[in-house]
Each structure stands twice: as structure tokens, then as C-alpha cells.
């Protein structure tokens, strides 16, 4: 059992940082919706507030790690230019996708959209974490602020979901592969 260096980084980017961010989004949305609503009956304790602060900071960090590892580690491998006349484009995912009309849309729509909207997630979550650090449980008394943070979190969830979907489909149709091989276990 083995994996290439590029596959490993693609997995860390998508299934590590990206998928974990998406999972945490649902928790943040539920918590902001239920606990910080002006009409919420149960009081927010200091412990709850600290937990949410750390939770949102972790989300922001994960979102930054996902987009920076995507843009500066995986994407350069994806968009590498093949030498002229090369018939086997499997090591050049962008050109492999563009070589066939049945797959070119995954690049022209999927990657072209994904590479930019993914950045909406760290911007939104950095804002959400900063607002929460400043206001904490006082958000219950600032319903407009809480609604805006919730709205940005929801849209960042959507943007990250779209980026994640296209990332998975792009990698299915033209995997980012190559580099050093890492042996994980011996086969029988």
C-alpha cells in the first residue's frame, strides 16, 4: 500500500482541512442559531463562550490552511504545463481535463469557480471569530450582528461545499498525482 507525495497533499488539503472545516460549519451554525438567539432561554456560561471562541478560531485556521495549501501546494501541480507534443497528460490534470470535451467543463466551470470562492470561507470565518471574540455572549443583545455572523457562516459553508464538491470531482476525473512514493504498508 503506497501513496504519492502529491496525492497525500491533495488528501490533506481536501479531506483534512477542507472536510473538517465543512463538518465544523454545521456545529457553528447550530450553536449560533440556538444559543445566541435573543430569545434563547438557557444562559450562555463562561465555559460555553470560551468553547465557542476556540471553535471559531479553529474554523478560521482550518479555512486558511485549506485555501493556502490548495493555492500554493496542490494548484501549481494541477496547472503545470506539459512539454510540447506530450501524448500522456496524466501528470498534467488541467491539460488532461481540457483535452476532452466531456471533461473540459470540470476545469472551465469547476476549477475556475472553486479557486476563487474558496477564499470566501477564511475571510468570513476570520470575521466571525473576530466578532465573537469581541462580543461573546453579548451577541444575544446584538441580534443584527449575530444574524450577520450567522449569514456569513452559512454562505461560507455553501462556498466551501461548492469548492469541496468540485475538488472531489476534479480529482476523480484528473487526479493530482506524482512525486515521491510513500510506502504505507507491505502487501501480501
Amino acid at each position: 500500500m503506497e501513496i504519492t507525495e502529491r496525492s497525500l497533499w491533495t488528501m490533506i488539503h481536501g479531506m483534512g482541512f477542507g472536510a473538517l472545516y465543512l463538518l465544523l460549519c454545521s456545529g457553528a451554525i447550530v450553536e449560533l442559531w440556538r444559543r445566541y438567539a435573543p430569545a434563547a432561554e438557557s444562559p450562555v456560561t463562561v465555559r460555553d463562550e470560551s468553547f465557542m471562541r476556540i471553535y471559531l478560531v479553529i474554523m478560521a485556521v482550518l479555512a486558511w490552511l485549506a485555501v493556502l495549501s490548495g493555492a500554493y501546494i496542490v494548484y501549481p501541480w494541477y496547472r503545470a504545463v506539459p512539454p510540447a507534443g506530450l501524448a500522456d497528460l496524466s501528470a498534467y490534470p488541467r491539460y488532461l481535463l481540457l483535452s476532452k470535451p466531456t471533461t473540459s467543463g470540470w476545469h472551465n466551470v469547476g476549477m475556475e469557480w472553486k479557486e476563487y470562492i474558496a477564499f470566501f470561507a477564511p475571510i468570513s470565518m476570520t470575521m466571525a471569530a473576530a466578532v465573537f471574540i469581541r462580543y461573546g455572549r453579548n451577541l444575544k443583545h446584538h441580534p443584527e450582528l449575530r444574524n450577520a455572523v450567522l449569514g456569513f457562516t452559512l454562505i461560507s459553508f455553501l462556498a466551501a461545499g461548492i469548492a469541496g464538491f468540485f475538488g472531489a470531482m476534479l480529482n476523480k476525473n484528473a487526479p493530482v498525482d506524482g512525486g515521491a512514493t510513500i510506502h504505507l504498508a507491505e502487501g501480501k
Binding site: M127, R134, N138, H142, E144
Partner: peptide
């Protein structure tokens, strides 16, 4: 009566929209 003024939150929210 609400404790903190909302300006700081408004600044973060509007800047995020402008950044996107």
C-alpha cells in the same frame, strides 16, 4: 444598555463583504 457598541462588529462585517 447593550454593553459594547456595535461599530467594531460592523467594521469586521463590512470589510469581509468588501474583501469578497
Amino acid at each position: 444598555h447593550r454593553g459594547l457598541p456595535n461599530g467594531s462588529g460592523g467594521a469586521a462585517i463590512l470589510a469581509a463583504g468588501i474583501g469578497a
